[in-house]
Design a protein around this nucleic acid. Structure first.
Length: 616
DNA sequence: ATAGGGTTAG
């Protein structure tokens, strides 16, 4: 056999492996041939095969081959870890590594980066393990490796610990686009927008990845408006926006700020660029329309989707449930199961939430059981909170209290507050006082918790406790964030702050509000001042309520929107009880449909009723 | 053989 012949055989083999990395059938075939030729124990074949199996998605085969290796070295270890990461099974990567570490093998720099990535993907439940890996890396002979350092920066970014990431970032010898992007992402997703922007401006690598990291991070941390401005800037810089990742983030930004008009424009951009049938983007669009209270459009997109995954179904189910259409949400769930799509933990949050809206106690309980028994999902605190909400809203207060005291999670502030608010609603003063004490022990942060506590103690005549609540408020410097509401009128949108009418149409707004107030009082409206935080006399409290921002926005909308159209308002805080009553009354008086999206819920007012069934 | 950007709840 000539030398050139064996060379060409080698070249052929390496070409075959490159096919095998993309095609599982070729990978299998190649494996069979290597066994036949007797080379299956010879380096580098087993490892190259593990790599091929991992890259073409046959993780099971990769793992089997790895287990059959008589001798595991660093290369085999690193290869199998990268296969696990590719298949999105970071837990498997950690468990394999535990056993290898027990055998006494120490990680090299390749193993470190894959392990750190696995930890990062597991999320902030794995902070401790991640820090241990960091320590082990610093003590290893590889402690100067820049690639591992970049993976650490990324890990701390995903844990939302950007200061830890920054320390590592500053120790990198040669920064490249990957390290810069990881660090920018770390600041952005932790909501540290000043630092994120400063770093981005300094970075010599302003490519698509960096822009997407910045924009998506800001969306995730609730800075949707900044994200949208940056997207406009990105477009102006001539960076191509024809990319599914950045587009889905920007659609998400429209969803989170509930800007319907802009959302529709983004939808047009998506169509123009040819991404209508991209699953991720369609999912984001369904969610966007639902969050902008346009369920018709959300459903239309959902129905037109060729492929629907669990996120698509969950988005439409949650969207439907949040608009008070519980029966429809439950019917969609049945369709989902019939379509063979397996629900996940988020789906059940939406479903149980839907049940609690309409008092379907036994259905909700059954869903909770089915989630555990049929789908093997371990309930999280959110699930218990939903179940608790279901019991307490429907007046099953004892069952609710039993649940909150026996569930395997420590109840947090919103959980106690939800139960307390239900006790108050159902007039169970004894229990309310008991629950209030538990809430007070937590030293709450949220101003609404203090309002609730103060009302409960005052209702029970426990004045010492009322003053204790007030003192704690002063100590903790609890202050209500200024409320504002915005209204979307197609081409323009207007923002109103509580307590002040904006200059345009100030007199007309005040005139209309007075007229409506008069109408409401004729129908028996008495202002409910129990949600006013500060100590002041009754008249002053009523004046405060009168100037709540959603009322100003509504009056402006009634004056300026096309007659008969639905009025859409977005508020930064939760709607207070009095405004809720007022909005219901005004929907009757003016025969208008009003959508209000507040911090937590959706309210659709029509003919004197609200889709939230007066419980929020 | 290793490191960077995306969708659903709260």
């Amino acid at each position: 056999m000539s030398l050139s012949h064996s060379h060409s055989a080698l070249a052929l083999k390496s070409q075959l492996f490159s096919f095998a990395r993309k095609n599982p059938f070729i990978a299998k075939k190649l494996h069979a041939q290597i066994i036949k030729s007797g080379f299956n124990q010879h380096d580098p074949f087993p490892k190259t095969l593990i790599d091929s199996y991992g890259k073409c998605g046959l993780l099971q085969d990769a793992l089997k081959l790895f287990d059959s290796l008589p001798h595991r070295d660093h290369v085999a270890w690193a290869t199998v870890l990268s296969a696990c990461n590719l298949s999105n099974l970071p837990y498997k990567a950690l468990s394999i590594s535990r056993s290898i570490l027990n055998e006494g093998l120490q990680p090299d720099h390749f193993v470190f980066s894959s392990l750190i990535k696995a930890c990062a993907n597991l999320g902030d439940g794995y902070i401790k393990q991640g820090k241990q890996l960091h320590a082990r890396f610093l003590l290893s002979p590889y402690s100067e490796d820049d690639v591992v350092k970049s993976s650490l920066v990324d890990m701390y970014a995903k844990f939302e610990l950007p200061d830890y990431g920054r320390a590592v970032f500053d120790s990198i010898f040669t920064l490249n686009s990957i390290s810069w992007t990881a660090m920018i992402s770390g600041y952005a997703r932790s909501g540290r927008k000043v630092e994120a922007l400063r770093l981005f401006r300094q970075s010599p690598f302003k490519n698509l990845y960096a822009w997407t990291a910045l924009i998506s991070g800001l969306v995730q941390s609730g800075n949707a408006t900044d994200a949208l401005y940056l997207f406009v800037e990105m477009r102006g810089e001539g960076v191509s926006i024809a990319d599914p990742l950045v587009l889905s983030s920007v659609v998400g930004a429209c969803a989170n700020s509930a800007v319907w008009e802009l959302g529709k424009q983004m939808h047009c951009v998506v169509i123009t660029l040819g991404y209508e049938s991209c699953l991720f983007i369609s999912n984001a669009l369904v969610d966007m329309y639902a969050k902008c209270s346009d369920l018709v459009a959300a459903k239309y997109i959902f129905c037109e989707m060729r492929r629907k995954d669990v996120v698509s179904w969950t988005s439409i189910i949650v969207g439907t449930a949040q608009h008070g259409l519980a029966e429809e949400a439950l019917a969609l769930y049945d369709d989902m199961v019939l379509a063979g799509v397996k629900p996940n933990e988020v789906t059940f949050v939406g479903l149980i939430y839907a049940c609690s809206h309409v008092g379907l106690v036994s259905k909700g309980r059954a869903l909770f059981k089915s989630m555990i028994g049929d789908f093997g999902i371990r309930p999280s605190l959110q699930h218990y909170t939903c179940l608790l909400d279901l019991f307490s809203r429907s007046g099953y207060l004892d069952e609710a209290e039993n649940l909150i005291r026996t569930m395997p999670f420590k109840p947090d502030e919103p959980t106690w507050a939800a139960l307390l608010s239900a006790c108050k609603q159902h007039g169970n003063i004894n229990m309310a006082v008991r629950i209030a004490d538990s809430l007070l022990d937590l030293k709450p942060e949220d101003p609404s918790s203090y309002i609730l506590l103060s009302n409960v103690y005052a209702g029970a005549g426990m004045w010492e406790n009322v003053s204790k609540v007030r003192k704690l408020m002063v100590v903790k410097e609890v202050r209500k964030e200024p409320g504002y509401s915005s209204i979307d009128l197609g081409k323009e949108s207007q923002v109103f702050y509580a307590g002040e009418a904006s200059q345009p149409m100030k007199d007309e707004i005040l005139g209309l509000m007075r007229k409506l107030d008069e109408e409401m009082r004729k129908r028996g409206y008495v202002p409910d001042t129990s949600s006013v935080l500060h100590d002041m006399d009754q008249q002053e409290k009523e004046r405060q309520l009168f100037w709540h921002s959603e009322r100003l926005a509504l009056a402006y909308g009634l004056l300026k929107a096309v007659p008969g159209t639905t009025i859409r308002i977005v508020k930064n805080l939760r709607v207070c009880g009095d405004c809720h009553t007022v909005l219901k009354l005004i929907s009757t008086i003016t025969s208008r449909e009003i959508y209000v999206r507040d911090l937590k819920r959706y309210h659709h007012f029509k003919d004197g009723n609200c889709s939230c069934n007066d419980f929020w």
